[in-house]
Amino acid sequence: MDRFTVYSIALLVLISSAIIVASYIGHKKGALEGTDDIVEDLATSTTHVQAKEIVPAIPEKLEPIGFTLAGVFGGLLVGYFWEDVFGEGGRE
């Protein structure tokens, strides 16, 4: 393995560890509210608008599956079929 690959794998392990630690802290202490929700609450309190769910959000427990599906569809549609959709004359 070259240095680039070794460092990339080390970075992957580091980021994954940070996610696991943060998840554990969140599990123990309860999740902190996101700033998007805080600001939207502020906006709704002054203007009486209400957030609507137009697209069905995936339940939290199914998010890993959602991420996988997003990756598969995103990768296939945007990556593999890019030439067919946007390329001149389609895939050669």
């Binding site: 137009i54 697209v55 959000a57 995936i58 959602g66 997003a70 995103g74």
Partner: peptide, 16 residues
Amino acid sequence: SIALFFQAFLGHGGIT
């Protein structure tokens, strides 16, 4: 835009 589109299905952002 592609990332934000898929994030709408994870409860972040929206389509409109």
